[in-house]
Design a protein around this nucleic acid. Structure first.
Lengths: 335, 335
DNA sequence: CTGAAAGCGCTTACAG
DNA sequence: CTGAAAGCGCTTACAG
């Protein structure tokens, strides 16, 4: 493994000059720079990030905290983050943060304390007070996507507005019995993603002066399936439309409707939120969001925060765009 | 940020002794060790991995190369790997390797050359010769899951046997027209996962002396849906059973069957491979595999390879278990 | 514009 | 069992 001393020797300069030529920091004559870079490529020199980190304090690596990896939203965010980080020549260190447990403490007490990462991108994590304090006191930038961490820069869609938009679409089609199937944390955590979508639902209903009913489900297709069987099972009080808090829940509603012999949209309208890659195949009307873009935007913000020459202070919160996509799963109710 | 010198001072020993006491390497009296560890916890000392790496050459970090993150198999593997790595106090550096492109070259030429990781776990990546050479010449252990890299330790299920088992299940139920919907690389890459499953299918059919027909699809639910519409569209030559190369394709077959008014298993039997988390909800018969276990096993192998005190040479290839789970999607054909 | 020197925070022979 | 010293591979003031 060639070291910078080898490059310097070959180029006939000191290590200091070689370092300056290679990093682009400090003055070096063009001629010298050329000689150094030529020498470096000739012997296949690649700087040791460890040695550099030791003196600069920078690791060229970003920690990503994420609760799941194989749910659509999270996977998309992660891929977007990864791609953008690669472009910025940063490494991605992954912390799959499940809820609670010794494992979780270990991530905060040990891994994130190791000075291994320059900044943290937290995806949909609700942090406890000690956890967020710990992050802040590290003095490292923390950027949050799809969740809220006090003291950190946040990028999310307007979840309340998304829930309201989905519900209003149904109301405008003429529906008056609109059930909601929401994520199970909607009830306990009003500030959670599903809690906020639920509030959007409530507000649209109240504005229209109609009642609703909410059923909680695991945030997955089986969760939506089980909940929908329950919601649709009694023919005497079956809603004409369902607002599913996310597309995966909506897919479960499709399966339940099929098994109950209900035709969509004739017997039931269904709308979701997400723009999941399968929504088109299902013909699902949905409020589309763009998690890959959110991931890339989070990286851009992180880079701004990390750039010593950039004094831009990013706004504490950025609202990311959504778009209503009307497909064949919603229609006016049968009369 | 306290350094080891601070710990040493507080405990009244030299840095060398503090280092030995904390790392557990080398002789230290019990009494000294206690004093040192007490001092370390008191001031919240955490060793700088960079400084340690510089002298030991070890980074305590493993690179994971993976083509997708939000396909079920890959997500499960990744979660299993992450969990096991955390337990071993290793960091996980993620490289989301898409097919081809400058990005891919950059991962091999730059990121993996940076001496940032102690070993590499490659998930379902087909490497080109220069790529695998480059990995090998780094001298870092490479462990492969669900794919084959010459010169590296490999853990996979027996894909051919899995395909054969799925097909035999259908044959034994009495089916004689069994279509296969396989991943699109089955045709071009005989050694790919889907190529091998297809060979298992062929071999079972040949053994039973019956013909088959194969349709290629994207390895996803929409892929399976589109292909199944094609396979099932013509009522005069509709098969009585479909072997889907993976569960996500099988789910697409379910949707296609529904839209064509076909009832499973009365009109059509369907079997998959994977044991996807949704397979139970669908009632899908499948050959289950355990990607989380595969991920954990890969980490265990990596740790063995990395342990200087462990001379165990892991076998070049380990076959991971599968299990046939019969649910309601397969039955004898209507006569 | 360039070089000599110090130092980042550890670990590891080497003496004792 | 412990300590003084060297060194891992860089970068960065500081002179010149």
């Amino acid at each position: 493994m060639p070291a910078i001393a080898d490059v310097a020797r070959l180029a006939g300069v000191s290590k200091a000059t070689a370092s300056r030529a290679l990093s682009g920091r400090g003055y070096v004559s063009d001629e010298t720079r050329l000689r150094v870079t030529a020498a470096a490529t000739k012997i296949g020199y690649i700087a040791s990030p460890n040695a550099a980190s030791l003196v600069t304090g920078r690791t060229q690596s970003i920690g990503v905290i994420i609760p799941f990896v194989n749910r659509w939203f999270f996977g998309e965010v992660l891929e977007g983050v990864e791609r953008a980080l690669l472009d910025a020549k940063y490494d991605l260190t992954l912390y799959n943060l499940t809820f609670g447990g010794a494992e979780r403490d270990r991530i905060f007490e040990f891994f994130l304390a190791r000075k291994r990462v320059d900044a943290i991108i937290a995806v949909s994590v609700e942090l406890t007070k000690p956890e967020s304090d710990r992050l802040i006191e590290q003095g490292k930038p923390v950027v949050a996507i799809g969740g809220w961490i006090p003291g950190s820069t946040t990028l999310t869609i307007d979840e309340v507005a998304a829930g309201r938009l989905a519900t209003e679409h149904l109301i405008h089609l003429g529906h008056r019995t609109i059930a909601h199937i929401g994520g199970e944390d909607a009830a306990t955590e009003p500030l959670s993603v599903h809690g906020q979508r639920w509030r959007g639902y409530r507000s649209a209903l109240e504005h229209a002066g109609i009642d609703g009913s909410t059923t909680l489900a695991a945030m997955s297709m089986p969760g939506g399936y089980t909940a929908a069987l329950q919601v649709l099972g009694d023919p005497r009080q079956r809603p004409t439309a369902i607002f599913a808090a996310c597309d995966e829940i909506a897919f479960g509603v499709f399966l339940a409707a099929e098994r109950l012999g209900l035709e969509i949209p004739r017997d039931l309208s269904v709308i979701g939120i997400d723009g999941h890659e399968y929504s088109e195949m299902y013909g699902l009307t949905t409020v589309e969001q763009f998690p890959g873009d959110q991931g890339r935007a989070a990286v851009a913000t992180t880079m701004t925060l990390l750039d010593p020459h950039d004094d831009t202070v990013p706004p504490p919160h950025t609202t990311m765009p959504v778009r209503l996509v009307v497909r064949s799963s919603t229609a006016a109710p049968a009369r």
